[in-house]
Simulated scan of single mutants.
Amino acid sequence: MHIIVIAWLYVTVLMALAESSVVAGILTLLFYGLVPTALLLWLFGGPVRRRAARLSQDASRTPSGGGDDKPAQ
């Protein structure tokens, strides 16, 4: 997915450079490039964030006694 993001940002940078004014170039880069890319990464990153949160929650629940279930004497 990262190669798609890089390619899309490359295209929008070229589009911004082709604009007739600096303001139009900045707005093109912002509204065609950065905002959609951030939205895409946030939406598709949701399952990864949930999985990481679940793994950290599971890790905090398990005892850190070295993997065996016997209590130390």
Rank of each mutant, 00 (worst) to 15 (best):
66 G>L: 11
12 T>P: 00
8 W>A: 03
71 P>A: 11
53 A>K: 02
62 T>Y: 00
71 P>N: 13
51 R>K: 03
36 P>T: 06
32 Y>D: 08
36 P>G: 02
18 A>Q: 10
47 P>F: 10
8 W>L: 05
56 S>R: 11
72 A>G: 04
15 M>K: 07
44 F>Y: 13
26 I>L: 14
63 P>V: 14
9 L>A: 01
28 T>W: 03
11 V>M: 06
65 G>L: 14
18 A>R: 05
60 S>Q: 07
25 G>N: 05
53 A>P: 01
45 G>W: 01
25 G>L: 06
31 F>G: 11
4 I>T: 08
36 P>R: 01
71 P>H: 15
26 I>C: 08
36 P>F: 06
43 L>D: 09
29 L>H: 07
21 S>I: 07
50 R>L: 13
50 R>Y: 15
52 A>R: 06
38 A>R: 03
17 L>I: 04
12 T>V: 08
10 Y>D: 15
22 V>G: 02
69 D>H: 03
68 D>W: 01
67 G>P: 11
73 Q>Y: 12
71 P>R: 11
54 R>I: 14
25 G>D: 09
2 H>A: 08
2 H>V: 09
69 D>Q: 10
29 L>V: 10
30 L>R: 10
42 W>V: 12
67 G>E: 15
8 W>T: 02
39 L>F: 13
21 S>F: 02
20 S>E: 13
27 L>T: 04
25 G>M: 06
41 L>Q: 08
8 W>R: 02
37 T>E: 04
9 L>G: 04
1 M>V: 12
35 V>I: 13
48 V>M: 08
45 G>D: 00
42 W>F: 14
67 G>T: 14
30 L>T: 15
22 V>L: 10
50 R>A: 15
37 T>W: 09
53 A>Y: 05
66 G>Y: 00
34 L>T: 07
33 G>E: 02
42 W>C: 13
48 V>Y: 12
66 G>K: 05
6 I>Q: 05
18 A>G: 09
16 A>D: 15
30 L>Y: 14
31 F>P: 11
71 P>W: 11
14 L>Q: 01
30 L>W: 14
52 A>S: 07
51 R>C: 01
69 D>F: 11
29 L>W: 06
45 G>T: 04
64 S>Y: 04
27 L>F: 01
53 A>V: 02
36 P>A: 04
54 R>D: 02
40 L>W: 07
24 A>P: 03
73 Q>H: 10
14 L>R: 02
70 K>C: 12
69 D>V: 13
63 P>A: 08
49 R>N: 07
5 V>Y: 03
1 M>Y: 12
63 P>L: 13
9 L>D: 05
73 Q>V: 11
33 G>F: 02
16 A>S: 15
55 L>G: 12
32 Y>F: 10
58 D>F: 11
3 I>V: 06
40 L>E: 00
